[in-house]
Each structure stands twice: as structure tokens, then as C-alpha cells.
Design a protein around this nucleic acid. Structure first.
Ligand code: NAD
Ligand code: NAD
Lengths: 215, 215
DNA sequence: CGGGCTTTGTGATCTTGTGCACGAGGGCGG
DNA sequence: CCGCCCTCGTGCACAAGATCACAAAGCCCG
């Protein structure tokens, strides 16, 4: 119902968290104001891009001065939906799922791990780093009761699509997939993926080409 | 010294591993030939894009028939530099570093973890999942002796830049960064990053906007 | 052996993203 | 209070990427 019809480009959305992190750093250093130039350097991009990106949020800078660190942080957090917590469920209590549950960084950044879920009865029942492990069957109820908005897939690739379907059925519309496979999600569901093997293979490509084609 | 001056676009490079995985699946299913249409479906992209991507590798399809699964796999592996192993060093033997070392998927895909490295004397000396833990100081020697080409940064963000510098100094020109911070690397070094907090914040953005703006 | 069918390979076009350059606007010193 | 200087905000041109559409090419069947 906001009057501004500004749709933020995808590429910009992916950079906002980087700017936000830079702003947090500046805030810790008690720096009140920052120029696009400085912010660009911290975020590893160019200054014009910073200004264009920030302009999508509104006109929050002061010409001749720069951006107020605290105010911009607030506006950015609001835009990113970080003014409240987003409880997360991790599906797959294996090697990776447990490591993620053990990691404190999520809660700290507003993404508390509310539950772990697994298909194996052996894994169900205990706690990992204070997070209860439930059975897959309880997912819909858990999602509703705990207000879970985001699901993380940490199962073998063979189970990933099935898990994605279960998450969707439980009303979860944001999915982060760690399994090295392509999965389909319903229209209106966001999907992001983390694919280590892919990253290494991309590095391999450039390494190989450096080695082969000189330099 | 190859006559074809075809530079493969970055976006294409990042999709090749996905195609390769699809081809491996087809091979396991004893399917000898695949159309761009089918491959596109498996990789979650559109068929024209598949054809254009593959055309950068060469003209390996047969009109009216499709692509030979095995032959295309080979050509793609060759292009990606996957015909031989790339030993990897993980810097930071903490929660994440250990989890990665424990993961068998790397070795299996041609990226054996040759060593773990840490700055803390307490962590140095033992083995994790059969991988020896060395001190940071030994990095240059290790890199040379073990032929390490890829470094993975799994330290706190505050140490990431310093570690990147050390990797560069040790002659490692491919870096995968897990620390949630922007790092600079020398010209001629490839850098990829995995940033979980960023992924979650991007999901948060779209979730928030779905919630706020209807649908 | 020729015609039809299928699927590739690629020019053309549209969309998205990047970077430059500069006018607009605001603070500040004199 | 005026004018200068600094930095934002943005129009524009360019580059990269996605998609479309179709001719070229090879297989297969009759
Ligand atoms: N461990 C790593 O460091 C790492 C790194 C990169 C990628 N990955 C990927 O992450 C995924 C998980 O890896 P992992 O090492 O934790 O594997 P894992 O085998 O240790 O754990 C998988 C867990 O998923 C559970 N599971 C299996 N099928 C399920 C289903 N249908 N529904 C719910 N739970 C199910 C299993 O019971 C098990 O607990 C894999 O796809 C792997 O390729 C892992
Ligand atoms: N654990 C996770 O699931 C997870 C998830 C997302 C991101 N991360 C990121 O990965 C990084 C590592 O996380 P973690 O949980 O393993 O942290 P950790 O504290 O468990 O481990 C960090 C390790 O790095 C070592 N180290 C510190 N400074 C070093 C230096 N200068 N040189 C070499 N080694 C050094 C420490 O001795 C320690 O062993 C962090 O940046 C974290 O934000 C972790």
C-alpha cells in the first residue's frame, strides 16, 4: 500500500546485506557518517553502484556530507525485513545440519534455529546445541507453532526434492538448499542455494585456464 | 595456443557444473543420448540457454539426435579442469573447518583435503578425519609440497584478510571464502564466497515483501 | 535415395546490470 | 548572507546475459 512503486533489482538486493555489514562495522567504530566512496571501498564495489543501490531505498543521503550510518542501517534493516527474527528449521540432522545448529551466528543475526527435523527415528528426540530434533512428520505442526518462515535443506541430494515439497506443504515459502541438486519449488516460494562442489569446480575452471593459457 | 578464441562467459561457467551433474545422473541411468530440452529440465534452465552454453565448448551435438552423454561429460570435465585432482587446504580448524574436513564429498569430486591449517597451537598436531592439522607458518611449504591449488577460508571474519594474504603469499591462486566479510585478493587470483547470512537476509527480503505487499 | 522430422547452433532482439559523468542540492567558511 | 566546495542522485551509453526464432544439418523411413 506504499505509494512508491520502486522494485529493487535482484542484484541490488544481494548487495544490501554487504552494505549493512559495512555499516555495522562503521557503527562499532563510532563513525557517524559515511560517503558512498568509503562504503564502496568497504563493500568491494564501485561508488556509483553504491549510490544507485541506496537510491532504491529512498533518498537518505545528504549531498556534500554522505549517509548517516545509524539512520541508513535502520532503513536498510527495515527494507530487508530484519526488524524482527525469522525462525529457521533445518531439515537433516547429519554432519552439516548439526554443524549449522552449532553455529551461533544465525541466532545473533536474527535467524534462530527453532528446530531440527530428520526422517531417521534414531536422530529424533534429543537436543543439539539446545535445539530439539523432531521427526519429519511433525514439520507442519512445528512450522505453525513456532512461526517458521525459512527452511534449510541439509539432507542428501536424493531426498532434497521430497524435503522441498514437504517444506512447501508446511507453508514455508523461503528455502535455502545445501544439497548439490536442482530442486523445484512452487510459484511464490523463494529458493537460494549453497553449492560447494560447484564453487570448487568454478575455481578449477579458472585455475586450469590460467595454467593452460599462460599468465 | 588453441586456435579457438572462445572465452566462456562467467554465467556459463557457473552452470557447467550443474550440467555435468545432470549428465552424471543420466550416465548412471544408462542413458546414452540427451536433448537440450531434457538437459534443460534437469538443470532447471531453458533449452536455448543450454544449447548456447554448450556451444561455447564446441559443436558436440548431433542435429536431430542430441548430445552423447559420455562424450559431452568428458569434454565438459576437460574444460572445467576436472581430469585431475585439485588438492585443497582448509584454513581454520574450528566448527566449520572440521565439518568440511569430515565431509567425504570433496575427495569424491576430485578436491581432496590435503591439509588443515590453524593459527592456534592447540589445534595443531592432530588429525581430523585423517587430515593432518598444521600451523599457519607451514603453509608455504605445505602448498609447495602437496601441490595445493585451492584454499578455503574458515576462520573468523576478523582474520580472513590476513589469511587471504597468507594464501596468496604461499602461491595459492584460488580462494573460497566462508567468512562473512569482503576480502581483497591479488590480480590473477580467483575468489568465490559462500555467505550464509547473506543468503538468509536475501530470503528475508523477499519473504518480508511477500508478506507486506500481498500475494 | 529423397523427403520429412527432429534437434542443434546461432543471429537478432530484449532485459538486466554496470559505470561514467554531471547537474542538483546542501553545508560551511568568510 | 553569499559563494564555493563536496557528495549525492540519476540520465545515458555500454556490456553482459537471457530468450526467441529459424535456418542448417543429420537421421530415418519408405
Ligand atoms: N557436510 C558438509 O560439509 C557438506 C558440504 C557441502 C555439501 N553438503 C551437502 O549437504 C547435505 C548433507 O550433508 P551431510 O554431510 O550432513 O549428510 P549426512 O548424511 O551426515 O546427513 C544427512 C541427514 O539427512 C537425513 N535424511 C535423509 N533423508 C531424509 C529425508 N527424506 N527427510 C529428512 N531427513 C533426511 C539423514 O537421516 C541424515 O541425518 C548433502 O547433500 C551434502 O552433499 C555437505
Ligand atoms: N560454523 C558454521 O556453521 C558457519 C556457518 C556460516 C559461516 N561460518 C563462518 O565460518 C567461519 C568459521 O566459523 P567457525 O564456526 O568454524 O569458527 P570457529 O571459531 O569454530 O573456528 C575458527 C578457527 O579459526 C582459527 N583461526 C583464528 N584466527 C586465525 C588465523 N589468523 N589464521 C588461521 N586460523 C585462525 C581459530 O583458531 C579456530 O580454530 C566464521 O567466519 C563464520 O562466520 C560458519
Amino acid at each position: 500500500m506504499t505509494d512508491r512503486a520502486r522494485r529493487i533489482p535482484e542484484a541490488t538486493v544481494a548487495r544490501l546485506p554487504v552494505y549493512l555489514r559495512s555499516l555495522a562495522e562503521l557503527h562499532d567504530d563510532k563513525i557517524a557518517t559515511v560517503s558512498s566512496e568509503r562504503l564502496a571501498e568497504m563493500a568491494g564495489v564501485n561508488a556509483a553502484k553504491v549510490r544507485k543501490d541506496l537510491s532504491y531505498l529512498g533518498s537518505y543521503g545528504t549531498r556534500g556530507v554522505g549517509y548517516d550510518v545509524e539512520y541508513l542501517s535502520f532503513q536498510m534493516s527495515r527494507e530487508l525485513g530484519l526488524t524482527h527474527d525469522w525462525p529457521v528449521v533445518i531439515v537433516g540432522a547429519g554432519n552439516l545440519g548439526q554443524a549449522l545448529a552449532n553455529y551461533g551466528g544465525f541466532r545473533q543475526r536474527g535467524f534462530p534455529v527453532a528446530a531440527l527435523v530428520d526422517a531417521s527415528r534414531e536422530k529424533v528426540g534429543g537436543y543439539i546445541h539446545g535445539v530439539p530434533v523432531h521427526h519429519m512428520d511433525d514439520l507442519p505442526e512445528l512450522a505453525a507453532d513456532l512461526g517458521i518462515a525459512i527452511g534449510i535443506i541439509a539432507t542428501p541430494a536424493s531426498a532434497a526434492q521430497e524435503v522441498a515439497d514437504a517444506l512447501a506443504a508446511a507453508g514455508i515459502r523461503s528455502i535455502l538448499n545445501f544439497a548439490p541438486t536442482v530442486i523445484a519449488v512452487p510459484e511464490g516460494t523463494s529458493l537460494r542455494k549453497v553449492d560447494l562442489a560447484l564453487e570448487l569446480q568454478v575455481l578449477s575452471f579458472y585455475q586450469e585456464h590460467r595454467d593452460t593459457e599462460g599468465v
